[in-house]
Amino acid sequence: MENPRYWRLKKQRYSLLGEVCPHCDSKIFPPRDICPECGGEAKTDFAFSGKGKVYSYTVMRDAPAGYEQNAPYTVAIVALDEGPMVTAQLTDLGEEPVRIGMPVEMVTRKLREDGEKKGILVYGYKFRPICFHENSQPASQGQAG
């Protein structure tokens, strides 16, 4: 059971809370101590919209321990609209086949269970194809700035 490490990252996992560099305005996800663009200190919260596009994807058939119950599942690299890329599962895939360039949106889902039905449940970001018209909700609320 690894509660502290999951707890520490809850904001970014649940709602894609990243940072904006106060020096060069780069949008940073996940949060870092040092801005990867300009090398300045980064610490200002920034809520990502959760919208992005599939950069690449694969279907996992041979899941590692802790993930067998979800196999097969699709993992993608998502290029967020604000710039950074993230690795995340795709979920709620409908009939439309996944393709590179597919627009997706962030949802908060159960990622895994820690420790054989006794440990905590780990929640975090996944992405799904944008399934409603343009007025569908942003992924996260608040905390900007």
């Binding site: 649940y14 119950q69 979800n70 599962q89 979920t91 709620d92 949802v107 908060t108 889902r109 159960k110 990622l111 449940l121 929640y123 996944k126 909700q137 942003p138 992924a139 996260s140 609320q141 608040g142 905390q143």
Partner: peptide
């Protein structure tokens, strides 16, 4: 519910929808 959904994840999405309509910040 899908394999990765439960009352918590479904509540989060419903709540996000409600907050958008309320036009308020969650804080």
């Amino acid at each position: 519910a899908g394999l990765d959904e439960d009352v918590i994840t479904m509540s989060i999405e419903a709540a996000r929808n409600a907050l958008v309509r309320a036009n308020i910040d969650a804080s």
